[in-house]
Every structure is written in C-alpha cells, then in structure tokens.
Design a binder for these strands. Sequence first.
DNA 1: CTGAAAGCGCTAACAT
DNA 2: ATGTTAGCGCTTTCAG
Lengths: 342, 342
Amino acid sequence: MPVTLRDVAREAGVSVRTVSNVVSGSVHVAPATRAQVEASLQKLGYRPNLVARNLRRGRTGLVALAFPELDVPYFAELARAIVGVTRQHGITVVIEQTDGRADYERELLEGGARSALFDGLILSPLALGVGEVADLAGGLPVVLLGEREAHHRLDHVAIDNVAAARVATAHLAEQGRRRIAAIGYQHPETNQTAHLRARGYEEALTAAGLPLDPELRIFTGYYHRDLGARAMRTLLDLPEPPDAVFCFNDLLALGAMREALSSGVRIPRDLAVVGFDDIEDGRYSTPTLTTISPDKKHIAHVAVQMLIARVAGDPSKPREHIAAFELAVRESTAGRHRRRSG
Amino acid sequence: MPVTLRDVAREAGVSVRTVSNVVSGSVHVAPATRAQVEASLQKLGYRPNLVARNLRRGRTGLVALAFPELDVPYFAELARAIVGVTRQHGITVVIEQTDGRADYERELLEGGARSALFDGLILSPLALGVGEVADLAGGLPVVLLGEREAHHRLDHVAIDNVAAARVATAHLAEQGRRRIAAIGYQHPETNQTAHLRARGYEEALTAAGLPLDPELRIFTGYYHRDLGARAMRTLLDLPEPPDAVFCFNDLLALGAMREALSSGVRIPRDLAVVGFDDIEDGRYSTPTLTTISPDKKHIAHVAVQMLIARVAGDPSKPREHIAAFELAVRESTAGRHRRRSG
DNA sequence: CTGAAAGCGCTAACAT
DNA sequence: ATGTTAGCGCTTTCAG
C-alpha cells in the first residue's frame, strides 16, 4: 500500500497542506514543523504519486520524441543526445517510432490513444508534409527535427541541407573528380530532405562547370545500407562509371563502399565517397568515411529548449533554428590507408 | 479547453456513467443510447484524459526500458524490437539511458523522481550486481535483459553466453587457428557478461587442445570501437601476434578490424575475427563480420510478455528464459572478398 | 441498463 | 505559517 500525503500528515500531526508544502518546497514552512514532517516522510518512506500530481497540474511531465526508426544510427545518436539534455531538465522522454508511416505520425500529432499522455512532441517527420503536420498539431507544442524547407508555422531545428550538399559535392570536384554521382534521390513529394540535398548537389556541379548527367542520379526508396549497395552496383555497371559519389546519408555510403570494394574498386583512388550525418560507423569503416557532420549536441539542446518554452506557454512566433555543420574529411576521399601506403 | 465526460454527458442528455461505459466499452449499453452518446462524442471531439484514468486505475500504462547507451547498435536494435512489440499491446514505453552508472540504475529501481511514473521496468543492468537489483526492485515488476548468471530472484531473458562464446571460439579453432586472442575481458565484479564470455572462450580453447595464453586476453573498459582498435594495436605489437581474435561484441570487432586493416593485416587470411551481437554494421563492413547472432525479436517478445504478466499481478516464481542464438559465418573468418580473389 | 456519488492523491485557493 | 477543502477527470460501487 503506497504512503499518501494524508498518512504522513497524520503521522506528523500536521495537515496535508503542510506536508505538501514541505515536499514541493514552494512555500515557507517553520523550521520545527519542517523537521517534524521530514522525519515522518522518511519514516514512512513517502513517494509522491506523480500521476495525481500531474492530473492536478494539468501536465504530464512527459515529452515524446518520435523518429522513423530507432536503430538508424543517426536517430539513435540524436535520441541519446536529447535524452541526455532532458534529464538535466527533469523531463521524461517517451520515445516513439513512426516507421515513417503517415498514420503513426498522424496519431502522435492528434493525441490519439496513447499520445494524450505527453505535453509536447519532438518529431522527425518522414511521411507527412509540412503543412499537414502543422494542421494536425493543433494546440500541441511541437518541435520539428530534420532538414526541411522553411514553413514558419512550427518551431524547427535543422541544418542547411542545400549548403551542406553543396559543400560535399564541391569537395569532390576539388579533388579533381569529374563524374560525380549521387545516391539517395527521392521524389520531392515523398521526401523534402532528399530534394534539398539533390539541389545542393546539382548546384555544386554547375558551379564547378560539370555537366548534369541524369544517369548519375540514383533514386532509393529508403536510406539503408542495402540500397546503398544496390545503387552502387547500378553505377558500376554503367558504360562509364563515376569516379566519385555523394550519398545522401552515411548508411547509403557504407553500403555503397561495401559493394564497390567487393568489386575490386579502390577507394578513394578509383572512387571517392562522401556521406552525410557523421555516424560513428563511418569513423571506423575501412576506409573511414568523409561526411557532412551536423552538430548533434547543439541540435538536441536547441530542440529541447524550444519545446520547453512552448510547453511553458511561450506564445512567440515559430522559430527556425539553423544548426551548424562541417565537412569531416576522412580516407574515403582524401586520406590513404595508413600503414599500407606508408 | 478539453472536452470532459461531463460535457459529453450533458450534450447527450445522459449521465457520465453512461458515457464512460460507451467509451470504455466494458458494459452493455442500449443501442439507442449508445448511438446518441457516440454522436455527442464525435461532435465535441472528446479525448479521454489518460492521466485521470490512470490515477483512478492506479496504473500509468507506461513501461520503462533502460539501456546503458541508446546509440550502441545492439541496444538500439533491441529497443526498436521492444517498442514494436509493446505497441501491439497498447503500452507506451519510456526509454531511459543509464550510462552504465550505478546511481541511475538505482534511481530507476527505487522509483525516484521520475520513475514513480511507470508500472514496470525492462532493464539491461551494467553497474549494479544481480543481488542489488533484486533488493532495490521491491515491488516493482522488473525484467532483466542481458546475459548474466542465473539468480532466480527476478525474471530475465538472455542467451547462453558461455555456450555462445564457446561456439565462436571453436569456430576459429576449426579453421586451424592456433593463437586465438580475446578482446573484452573485464573484472568479474564489474561485468558478469564479460566473465561468462571469457569462460566460454577459455573452455573452447581447452577443448581444442590449445594453450591458455594470458597475453592474448585483452581487457577493455567498455565495448566501443575505439577500444577494439586499441586492443588490436596491443595484439599486433606482440612478439608473436595472434592469428585469430574473438571480440566480446561487434563494436570491438569492428574497431579491431579497422586497426588491423590499417596495419596491412589481411582479414581473414592473416587474422580471423569473430564478433558478438550481429549488429547491422557487421553485415556491410569490409570484410563482413562473422558473429554470434542472438534472436533479438524473440528476446523482445519474451521480455515484454513477462513484464506484462507481472504488471497484471502474475505471482509465479521468477523465470529465466534462454533465447536462441546462432553463429553467422561471414567473410571475416571464412569467406573471401568476392571479386578481388575471383 | 443507467443515474448519483464517492473517491484515486495531489495542489492551491480560501481561510485563519 | 498552516489548517480546511474543493476539485483535476475518470472509474466504479451502490441504487434503482
């Protein structure tokens, strides 16, 4: 049987009000009374019932974090960072997985069955368009994660995808590569992020005076290693294969490298590869992967800050926060295998 | 302003009791009344307040899942599986990260600040010993994850680590390897899992008639790629380096392979490598990684089942479920690089 | 089958 | 500074 405030009050010979005050520490309590109450608290082993407290306060103290897939390293790393930040704020995070399905994303926003349980939501949308997310959110505080076109209706934090893709592609061009392929194209309605990265890629090509060859654009349904490998296969089977490839995320790049290496292609000599996300794997792959590295800690920090402000009732207009990124140059474009070549 | 049962009752011209019955669907309601109520429900857009419901029911409907680190692929993959299973059961999962810290693990078990919020806990303990976990759990339903010595005080699901390590090591011996190293030793008080794997490793060595060379046992503080790389460095610098290595998890193996390859060591020709966990990375690394593959889906399924039963009040004595595993043989021990050698 | 009403444990007016 | 008390929204006995 759990110990309630009443039990403690009786034991200490005071009112529930006083015990509540001691527990919450908000109001002044006479030192003598406080000591008395604390003794009883201790003695009975009181634990506040958070559900009751939340009901009373009209908040749950829970925040949801929703990613398409929890085991995609980029999301896992971001989740870790976010959970770390929220802990410092005394907030508990419920982690949800949308599987990139529109119905799951919708349910989260609409406060369906389970979602009525949290005060706010940090969402990395995949299936739903910007507009629909904003429409469905209604009064629920929402912070959008991930790189998407600005929309000005919801808070969101992201990096400049077009710029990042441009930097990645330009890096390849600077290495003297002439046939630079891209893996990860998607249809614009499906995936905004892919669209932005594609734009950056094409802009950089043009800026470098390189032709835009549609043959070098590979569309993939999702961003996992297997499709990266398949895409590379397609590229290698081309009459004139590319001498570089920009993959729209690291997983695609890792899969692509795997396939290329299996086929005897040397990286970076025959083929240079750049990824996107800077996941841990790419730092230990052979060769290590050059990639766009978004500042994940910063993203986590800002997203949580924004959400907390909204939950607290901040009425200011939606903000768009552009987080920093950098190009992490590693062996897949520039370095050599350490001992092997030395 | 949220719509409450009372609002709906007034609108429908019935009592709250009836509306509640319609919503929960537990009791029979006259068809006419039901239709009437449902119309009002719809019209007002009623959403049950889960916090209130939970207060009344004395449950939260939340279950916590705690891993040392969310971005360790093995945990991320398991988390995904568990979240998937719970969704089918209408349970919401709070994911916590312990950082392998004793104080965090303790707080979860004791129902500290935030933890009073959930009905049960699936925990993959790292810092705390078996006994202490059981002591602290008190009345909280807990299912332990991860491979540890049997203790019979709490439910737990794991694979047979000793056997798995034996299989992994034996596989190496069967390939004709004579100097088989092991990376991932830890002091028994610190980490039971490491201890079990070490035992399996040593048993297999003995069974194969191979000597136990302490020089070939590398201790590592944690199980990430960086320490795997460092351990391999140590092994390569030995007067007589090993011709095979069993790493206590895939991350260590990936780091070790990376270091070996950088040093010009050929895998598997000069050095065979086996990992443990079967994370996605190992299927696309170069070379692909031979590893112990636990049945994660099954583990997730059983763990959730056990917890649900406990939360529902199942009083039967603690069960230990041994999940299946298999050895996934890949290039790092047996295969060759496809095109390169062919 | 449905209405009235009593709390679940807590917080916060409202008193004193 | 502290006691008294009215709910937060819901489920569920108790009647009828």
